[in-house]
């Protein structure tokens, strides 16, 4: 039995603590967690999702683009005929990506440091669900389209409320949850199991499409469910 399968999947209820503002919340329940789990997280992120892999493989030779929220860079070498920049908020994950020889930089998805309409493609895989308010999710999506050239493709993946592959079952009354990340106990290091809570907004069917269309910046050409996620491929207007 591989340890990768033994992660308990019960979501913790997320109580919206009014004392915390979204910035503090995301710092504590997203950024800080990824910094701490980077190494373990990376060791579980090696198998590309077929839809994402296909998206990269179909791009024209010489395309220049960016994966916003690239993590350890798992998609950055799927297609050697494109120039792809990996960007992430977590410096520990970006160091792993850079150490694999990938073009990597640290930035915030809410405020991307790139020129308007400079990229031939843009991807956002498992990122938008970490923003705690609808406004911040919309801002992040608008940024993806701002930097994409007119006519270029943008791929966005988010976690679904409706989970069919994993043993996770979410209560549909609660879209905002904490999902545990468990680092197993290590006998050699005499370390107990560590559980980190990560904040997720679980997307319901149609919700991502609505956010994308509401930006007024893009046309959706594909929208589907895959591996516990909703995804959209949109063309920048």
């Amino acid at each position: 039995m591989s340890s990768k399968k033994s992660t308990p999947t019960q979501a913790f209820l997320y109580e919206n603590k009014k004392s915390l503002n979204p910035i503090t919340e995301e710092q504590q329940y997203v950024h800080d967690v990824y910094e701490k789990i980077a190494q373990h997280f990376s060791s579980t992120r090696y198998k590309p999702w077929p839809v994402v892999e296909e998206f990269f493989k179909e791009l024209e030779i010489g395309s220049i683009g960016i994966d916003v929220g690239c993590g350890n860079g798992k998609y950055l070498d799927v297609n050697r005929n494109i120039y792809i920049i990996g960007a992430d908020r977590s410096s520990n994950l970006i160091e792993i990506s850079a150490s694999r020889g990938f073009e990597s930089l640290i930035c915030d998805a809410l405020k991307l440091p790139y020129r308007n309409e400079c990229f031939d493609f843009v991807t956002s895989i498992a990122v938008i669900h970490h923003f705690t308010t609808p406004e911040r999710r919309i801002t992040a999506i608008k940024e993806l389209f701002r930097i994409a050239k007119p006519g270029s493709k943008v791929l966005i993946y988010v976690w679904a409320m409706e989970q069919t592959e994993s043993r996770r079952k979410f209560d549909e009354n609660y879209q905002d949850v904490f999902v545990p990340w468990v680092i197993p106990a290590d006998k050699n290091e005499k370390r107990e199991e560590i559980v980190y809570k990560r904040y997720y907004h679980l997307f319901k069917k149609g919700e991502l499409d609505e956010l994308v269309l509401n930006t007024g910046l893009a046309k959706i050409i594909r929208s589907d469910y895959n591996k516990d996620n909703w995804y959209v491929i949109a063309i920048k207007k």
Binding site: I23, R89, S91, I94, E95, A98, S104, L105, I106, C107, D108, L110, K111, P113
Partner: peptide, 14 residues
């Protein structure tokens, strides 16, 4: 640093 640009801003700069 080590080939990695850090483009994060502090809260007052955003």
């Amino acid at each position: 640093k080590d080939g990695i640009p850090n483009m994060l801003l502090s809260e007052t700069e955003t």
